[in-house]
Structures are given as structure tokens and as C-alpha cells.
């Protein structure tokens, strides 16, 4: 197990290296100049020269030096640089927003699984029956409904029909846990149902495959009841690829969270990114970009490690 873990962690190094290169170059190489924007917005062009401003922000150094000092700062001191506008450390800002996005993501995932797994199981048990047909139709439809449209509808229609509009001011969890959960419930529900479609189909497919195995016939033959066969023997084995899917869906979940945060004004990473993008705040953009990438990589590692818990046959070598 330890050797496996070490090898997996070593394998992360090239992935993270390329990820950091992607982040750094996409943001820096393409000309979209913060200096021009700062001069235009703050009217400081008359007082400070362009070169001086560039020098003060460290943007006049060669690209390689900039990359090395950026990545060095992160690796050695956990320093993601400072925001070009507010001068506050990017790391602090990002990590203060991270829990909100994470909470939304976990709630959405919980919704997705509670919708997907039962429907998937029932669909497989009643293959080609009415329940199967309805379940599958629902899931394909949910794949097609854009989350931002659902979000907009949920904002617009209750307010027209019943005069209800969701609270716009965000309540942090530590101030009012229940209010916070209620506030995040709708975006999590929308995000979760759209996510559930793929998971449901995967659960169904895997259940169909597992239910045909010999050991399932044995379980039936020894007289175990349906509940025992389905949950103890079939579902546990069918869930392994479903768990992998959760890892693969992490990026989609985070992307969806950006849209939900924008619609429901939730101060998470997505909103931070959108604000930073509109101000060309490079360090913040790179910080969010990189941390999201690392988070996805870590989630996938955790997913792989969780196989051992689900499937005793899996030995990490």
C-alpha cells in the first residue's frame, strides 16, 4: 500500500508540472495587458511611466525567471503572489473561498448520488420495464438541460408567481448553518440532478453486468432475499466504476459551480475567478486555475485509493 502510494505521488509530479506550465503560459503569453487597464482605469499613466509600473509589478523580467520565481514561491513558501489590485496574498483569498465551492460541490454530489444510484439500481432490476424507461428518459433529458437556464428559471418564475426571490446576501456556514444550507440547496439541487444523469446510466450498466454473474446466482440459490442480493452482493461490486466516474466528474462539478455561483451570487472560487478575469488580475487567475487543477488531481487520487475500501480484491502493488 505504501509503495503504491509513493508511486502514485511520484506520478503526480509530471502531471502537476505540465499543469503549472499550462496555467502560467495561457495566462502570460497571450497579450491582454493589465498595465493598459491599470493606466486607463486609475489614471496613473500621467504620474508613473509604463515601464516603471511594469517593473514594480515584476512583469518586465524574462518569462522563465517569472515562471521560476512564481513556482518557487508556491513550492517553498506556499506563496501564490499578491493580487495586482488589492495587493493581498492570493493564497489567502483563494483558500478563504475554497470551502464555499467545496460545500456546494459536496452537496451537489450528494444530490447526484441519492438520485442516481437508486434510479440506476431500479432501472437495472426492471430492465426494459416502465420504471427503466422513465428513469433513462429522465436522465437523458437532464443531460440536455443547461444548468444556467434552470438556475435562471428558478430565480425568475417563483418571483413572478409567488413573489418569492432567493436571498441574495450570502450567509456563511459558521454564522448561520441552517440558513447557509438552505441557500445552497437550490444550486446544489440543479447541479446535482444534471450530474446524476451520467452516474445513473453507469450504475444501471454496471448493475446489469454484475447481476448476470455466477456469484449472484449463488446468492439467490442459497435463498438470500432480494435486498441482500442487490445491496450486499451486486451494488457493492457495481459501484467501483461509478466511483471512478465521480473522480472524472470533479472538473464538470467545479465548472458547473462557477455558473451557479454567478447566478446565485455565492462567493466561492468561481465568482473570484470571474471577478479576477474581468480585472485581468493575473496572480489571482493563475492561483485559482492552479488550485482547481491540483484539487482535481488530488480528488482522482483519493478516488483510486478508495477502491481498496470498496473492493477487497484490489491490492495496491
Amino acid at each position: 500500500m505504501r509503495a503504491y502510494l509513493v508511486r502514485r505521488l511520484l506520478a503526480l509530479i509530471p502531471t502537476l508540472f505540465f499543469a503549472s506550465l499550462i496555467v502560467f503560459t495561457t495566462v502570460r503569453l497571450i497579450p491582454g495587458d493589465i498595465i493598459d487597464m491599470m493606466i486607463a482605469q486609475n489614471d496613473i499613466g500621467s504620474k508613473v511611466s509604463r515601464d516603471a509600473l511594469e517593473h514594480a509589478l515584476g512583469l518586465d523580467r524574462p518569462m522563465l525567471t517569472q515562471y521560476l520565481s512564481w513556482i518557487g514561491g508556491i513550492l517553498l513558501h506556499g506563496d501564490f503572489g499578491n493580487s495586482l489590485w488589492q495587493q493581498n496574498p492570493v493564497g489567502e483569498e483563494v483558500f478563504s473561498r475554497l470551502p464555499v465551492t467545496f460545500e456546494l460541490g459536496i452537496m451537489a454530489l450528494a444530490v447526484a448520488l441519492t438520485v442516481a444510484i437508486p434510479i440506476g439500481v431500479i432501472s437495472a432490476l426492471r430492465q426494459d420495464g416502465l420504471g427503466d424507461f422513465l428513469g433513462r428518459s429522465f436522465s437523458i433529458l437532464m443531460l440536455a438541460v443547461p444548468g444556467f437556464w434552470m438556475g435562471t428559471m428558478v430565480m425568475v418564475f417563483p418571483s413572478i408567481w409567488w413573489g418569492i426571490s432567493p436571498e441574495v446576501k450570502f450567509v456563511p456556514f459558521h454564522e448561520d448553518p441552517i440558513g447557509n444550507l438552505i441557500q445552497l440547496a437550490i444550486p446544489a439541487l440543479i447541479l446535482g440532478t444534471s450530474l446524476s444523469a451520467v452516474t445513473m446510466r453507469m450504475t444501471r450498466t454496471m448493475m446489469l453486468e454484475v447481476l448476470r454473474q455466477d456469484y449472484i446466482r449463488t446468492a439467490w440459490a442459497k435463498g438470500q432475499n432480494e435486498r441482500g442480493v442487490v445491496i450486499r452482493h451486486a451494488l457493492r461490486n457495481a459501484l467501483i466504476p461509478v466511483v471512478t466516474l465521480i473522480g472524472l466528474q470533479a472538473p464538470i462539478l467545479i465548472g458547473g459551480a462557477v455558473i451557479m455561483e454567478q447566478i446565485f451570487v455565492i462567493p466561492g472560487m468561481g465568482l473570484l475567478l470571474l471577478e479576477a478575469v474581468s480585472r485581468r488580475d493575473y496572480p489571482v487567475i493563475t492561483g485559482v486555475f492552479l488550485i482547481v487543477g491540483v484539487a482535481v488531481v488530488v480528488i482522482n487520487l483519493l478516488v483510486d485509493l478508495s477502491y481498496g475500501l470498496l473492493d477487497p480484491k484490489v491490492r495496491f502493488r
Binding site: P14, I30, G32, P251, V277
Partner: peptide, 23 residues
């Protein structure tokens, strides 16, 4: 390895970042 790195970023976030720089 490059594909791995690329796939660890949510599509929407790559798109937002790149569009913000390219216009």
C-alpha cells in the same frame, strides 16, 4: 502526461481564462 494535466482543469475554467486573455 500533457493530456492528464490538461484534463485536470475544468473545461469551463480553461475557456473562461483563455477567452479573457484572447478576447
Amino acid at each position: 502526461r500533457v493530456v492528464d494535466a490538461w484534463m485536470s482543469f475544468p473545461e469551463l475554467i480553461i475557456l473562461i481564462v483563455v477567452v479573457s486573455v484572447v478576447g
